[in-house]
Amino acid sequence: MESKELASRNRKLVGRLGIAAVVMFGFGFAMVPLYNVFCDITGLNGKTGRIEAEAALGQAVDMEREVTVEFVVSVNSDLPWEIKPMVRQIKVHPGAVTEVKYAARNITGNTVIGQAVPSLVPGLASKYFNKTECFCFTQQTLAAGEYKEMPLRFVVDPALPKDVSSVALSYTFYRMEGGGETQPGNGLEKITLGQVSMGSDPLEPVL
């Protein structure tokens, strides 16, 4: 084989393989939107949905069925807040809008901004779990020592697969650097209030 010809064949091959490497580098990044689309369709990563309050209240309530919703909170170590759901678990009828509250206290002497990130188990149920209002939609600001009860309004879609009888909603709170805004509550009447079984201080340990 002539060495010139070999040189050009080598060059061509190196070019192609080099392009393949660059494409695969791009593929690594493409996995991010691909993963998100996949999770949106399947609900794999437990990200819950949001719907308008009017749409939620218009849904038919399935009085025949009860679904247990459990509430879990974890607080990132960077965030100096105490947070607890004011009810640990609640039984709801699919289609009924329900409100529960979370109690939070900033235990430092400074104003701190936090953000809650939700996740629902089982993941495949997450696309049937919708919120009309949630403290996780926006960042929350607590002044030094401030205590606050934060509302969450949700509705379980009546189309929730029959084999799901209980779901667990978990929030992780993180500290944020920027400024936050709070969302004003809008007193809708048709809302079932969750049972608040707390003593004088909701942040007392719940057994």
């Binding site: 580098f25 791009g26 690594g28 996995m31």
Partner: peptide, 13 residues
Amino acid sequence: IAVMPVLAGAVTM
């Protein structure tokens, strides 16, 4: 060639 670039992408992220 197929996977080392994906690792490079992951650590770049």
